[in-house]
C-alpha cells in the first residue's frame, strides 16, 4: 500500500517570553499513516495541535524531532518536489486584498509554473467548480466570507494536488455554505481521487466526510480509527428509548448480545446498545415475548460528538 502521509515520533515545541524560557509542547510524539486516496480527519479541541500538525505536513513549519514522508518523499530533502504536489486551504481565508478573484488565482497559478492557455483553462475550471465566475472581477476585500472560502479551496486546487490539506475549511460559515463546501470536498475525494487530510472540531463534519479520524488532544493522538470503531471502542453505543407498560426482566435484557447498559425509570426504559440497527429487532422481540406493551420508541445514534466529549472530559 502506498502512503500519502507517514509521520513517526513527531515533536514540536514553541518557545516564547524572555530568553525563550516559556515552552509549549504543541506535538508530543505523533505517529500517523494516511494511505493514498483516503480522506482522514484530524479532530481535537482548540489548541490541541491540529493546525501545527498540518503546518508541518505542508512544509510551513519545521519540527525539532521526528520523521515525515509526504507522498513517499522525505520532507527535509524534497521540500520543493513535495510542494509541487500538495496544497492547503484554511478556514478564515486570507488573500491579497486588492486583487480580484481571478487575479488571485492567476498569481497562485503562476507560482506553480502555469502560464498561457493552461493557466487560463485551469482558472476557468476552478472558477466553474466553485461558482466563482460572477465574482471573477470582484476584489478579495469585497467578497463575502463564504465566497472567500470558496476562493481558498479553488486556489488549493490550482496545481491539481495529489494531497490536499484542509484546515477547518467550514469554520465561521453559515449552514448553507457549509453544506455546499462539504459536498465539494466529498466530490474532490470521490471523483477527483485526491487524498485529503482535514482538521476540524466539528464532529458532524468529520462523520460526514472522513473514513478515518484521529483524535489529537494536548499534542498527542489519543485514538484513531473509523468513527464506528471509535464509538465501539469507547462503548459509546446508540440509545433506544422505549416507553412501556409492564414489568421488564432487566437481568435477562442486559444479558443479551450488544447491550451495554439499561436504565429503567418509571415507565421509561433507556437501553444503550453497540449498534441500534443490529439490536433493535431482537429487543422488540424480547419485549413482545415478555408481553410488555410499548407505546413509544425513540432512537438516538451516538456520534463523534460523544467520542469527542469522552476524550476531552
Amino acid at each position: 500500500m502506498e502512503f500519502a502521509v507517514e509521520v513517526k515520533d513527531l515533536c514540536k515545541t514553541f518557545s516564547s517570553g524572555w530568553f525563550r524560557k516559556r515552552k509549549k509542547e504543541a506535538l508530543k510524539g505523533i505517529d500517523l499513516i494516511v494511505p493514498v486516496g483516503a480522506m482522514w480527519g484530524i479532530l481535537g479541541p482548540n489548541g490541541a495541535g491540529k493546525t501545527t500538525l498540518l503546518s508541518i505536513l505542508s512544509n510551513l513549519l519545521t519540527p525539532e524531532q521526528g520523521e515525515v514522508r509526504i507522498l513517499g518523499l522525505d520532507f527535509r530533502t524534497n521540500g520543493n518536489e513535495i510542494r509541487k504536489r500538495i496544497n492547503l486551504s484554511s478556514g478564515h481565508a486570507n488573500f491579497l486584498w486588492s486583487m480580484s478573484v481571478q487575479e488571485n488565482l492567476k498569481y497562485y497559478a503562476m507560482l506553480y509554473g502555469l502560464s498561457g492557455k493552461s493557466l487560463n483553462s485551469k482558472i476557468e475550471t476552478v472558477m466553474d467548480m466553485f461558482s466563482l465566475k460572477d465574482f471573477a472581477r470582484v476584489r478579495f476585500e469585497e467578497l463575502s466570507t463564504g465566497t472567500k472560502q470558496k476562493l481558498s479551496l479553488a486556489k488549493a486546487l490550482i496545481n491539481e494536488p495529489e494531497l490536499l490539506f484542509l484546515d477547518e475549511p467550514t469554520v465561521g460559515l453559515d449552514p448553507d455554505v457549509t453544506n455546499r463546501i462539504r459536498d465539494i470536498i466529498k466530490y474532490l475525494h470521490q471523483e477527483k481521487k485526491i487524498t485529503i487530510l482535514i482538521t476540524t472540531h466539528n464532529m458532524k463534519e468529520a462523520e460526514f466526510l472522513c473514513e478515518e479520524v484521529a483524535f489529537i488532544i494536548n499534542g498527542s493522538i489519543k485514538a484513531k480509527g473509523s468513527p464506528q470503531d471509535l464509538k465501539e471502542k469507547l462503548h459509546l453505543g446508540d440509545t433506544i428509548l422505549i416507553d412501556f407498560k409492564g414489568l421488564i426482566p432487566a437481568a435477562a435484557l442486559k444479558a443479551m448480545d450488544g447491550i451495554y447498559d439499561i436504565q429503567i425509570h418509571n415507565s421509561s426504559c433507556k437501553i444503550t446498545v453497540d449498534n441500534h440497527r443490529k439490536r433493535l429487532a431482537q429487543i422488540l422481540e424480547f419485549f413482545t415475548t415478555q408481553n410488555i406493551m410499548m407505546s413509544h420508541i425513540h432512537i438516538k445514534e451516538s456520534d463523534l460528538e460523544d467520542v469527542f466529549i469522552s476524550f476531552t472530559r
Partner: peptide, 15 residues
Amino acid sequence: YDVWSKALKHGFIAP
C-alpha cells in the same frame, strides 16, 4: 503585502 493580507503561507507553500 502578504504579511498585511495575512496570506504569507500561501506563497511559501508553493514551489
